[in-house]
């Protein structure tokens, strides 16, 4: 341990264990959430996950991120240092802003999942024309 600033990842407390078919620990990915103009940007660290094993679900203002991570070790090796666990990621968020769920987009690169959540049209400032009759 050469530093007190070693980054670790916490276990997911809200993991829905009943829905999990694989054993092992489930981790809570670290996230950054930013507001960027007309959208919210969520960036989650899910290192080890493959893009096709990431599942994103948005319903009734709840955003759910689930990412499967394949085992990294064969089980025959001896550990000289073991500082983090390898396992699936799970995290949910309550999004208070109205989100246009049809336009949510996501991309994945270098272990970081980026979600773009565009705000619903209703929230955007709008000019209403007054009809003269």
């Amino acid at each position: 341990m050469d530093s007190e600033n070693t980054i670790t990842k916490p276990a997911a407390e809200e993991a829905a264990m009943a829905e999990r078919t694989r054993c092992g620990c489930c981790y809570r990915p670290n996230v950054d959430i930013l507001e960027q103009g007309d959208e919210l940007l969520v960036r989650a660290d899910v290192p080890g996950a493959k893009s096709d094993s990431i599942d994103i679900h948005f319903e009734d203002g709840t955003l759910e991120i689930r990412a499967e991570v394949p085992p990294r070790y064969e089980g025959r090796e001896e550990f000289l240092l073991r500082e983090y666990g390898v396992g699936d990621y799970y995290r949910t968020f309550q999004v208070s802003e109205a989100i246009d769920s049809g336009k949510i987009s996501a991309n994945y690169a270098d272990g970081v999942l980026t979600l773009h959540l565009p705000k619903a049209e209703a929230l955007k400032p709008r000019k209403i024309a007054v009809d003269a009759s």
């Binding site: 980054i7 670790t8 990842k9 990294r72 070790y73 550990f79 000289l80 500082e83 983090y84 390898v86």
Partner: peptide, 8 residues
Amino acid sequence: WSPAVDVT
């Protein structure tokens, strides 16, 4: 900061 490592 320093990253956590596994050494096997």
